[in-house]
Design a protein around this nucleic acid. Structure first.
Lengths: 170, 170
DNA sequence: ATAAATAGTTATACTTTTGTAACCATTTTT
DNA sequence: AAAAATGGTTACAAAAGTATAACTATTTAT
């Protein structure tokens, strides 16, 4: 029985992983299209810049490489997107006192404010859709999306290839 | 008390919608990057073609416009992506007997098979990450992602602008 | 029957993102 | 001190996706 329960456990696990991936793959284009489109129409920022801004709201500071890692974005592209955000005073660079090669980025108060405005604006359409859901469904979606978000954020989608090494252990 | 409870209800609702959007916006780049990168490296298909293929696994048939609607993809782009899938024998066109302007697309058995292979392959990295999660977390993610997926799929991310009208009522 | 609307394609210009390699500055290794 | 590794930038080529308009074929409305 021990053995048996172990096997089913493991089986379940595999099934679980596949179904998770299945779900995530389905979720992705739905979100991708909604937000990307809105971003294009309602802001001057590239989708990429906005992702950078977004990830910076979750961390006090990130180095250029870490940003690229969190978003699996090539380093040269990170440079470009951060440059744009700096022009807009939404983020700022500062050297790492311990290692002067490292350039850290943090979001500015203006960045936080702007990001909130942008979020409001790009999510207008989706808000209208969500308003049509009944309370129970909405609540379910709220809890479920929070869980997905939190779990995914603990997973580093790192890549070691594109341009030098990427995320190290957190 | 009735009134009060109504107000809090409504407040909660607004808070819920905002937090849902917040979560979805956070989830999006995480998935986007993971899958997009893998798609690029492990298949010959564009990400776009794969999204089309994916959405076709969920519906028996879809017209060109409906595909564009489900994915919020401009119609000319849908044409391109479907063309590529047809060359690979992964989907097929057939006229709608009731209205010969409409071209319906359905996935072929080969398409289903290939899509499964591709899914396996593009999700390898993510599978390794997910394997590191403990069972409880994985189970939570499985349930939560399923809920998010199912709810989002009931919401049409339609757009009426790009190229003529889009999704009509389901 | 004619005009207007709809579904889809073609063509084209454009933006965003990716991939690669060369390069500088700094740190680590030896 | 010299060599190797690391973090970041620059520059350029290529892929993917977006926007728009013009066009054909079919259907619907008048």
């Amino acid at each position: 029985m021990n053995n048996y329960s172990f096997i089913t456990m493991s089986e379940n696990n595999i099934i679980s992983i596949d179904s998770v991936i299945e779900n995530l793959i389905s979720i992705h284009p739905l979100l991708s299209k909604t937000f990307t489109r809105s971003i294009r129409h309602k802001t001057n920022l590239n989708p990429g810049s906005l992702y950078v801004l977004g990830v910076l709201t979750h961390y006090e500071k990130l180095s250029m490489s870490e940003i690229g890692c969190k978003l699996a974005m090539p380093k040269p592209h990170v440079t470009n997107q951060v440059d744009k955000l700096i022009v807009e005073n939404m983020v700022e660079r500062f050297f790492d006192p311990a290692d002067r090669r490292i350039i850290n980025i943090r979001i500015t108060p203006k960045g936080i404010e702007d990001f909130n405005d942008i979020k409001q604006s790009i999510s207008e359409e989706m808000r209208h859709k969500l308003e049509l859901l009944d309370n129970e469904t909405l609540e379910k979606l709220s809890v479920a999306s929070l869980q997905v978000k939190e779990i995914l954020m603990t997973i580093d989608m790192d890549r070691t290839k594109t341009s030098g090494t990427c995320c190290k252990s957190e």
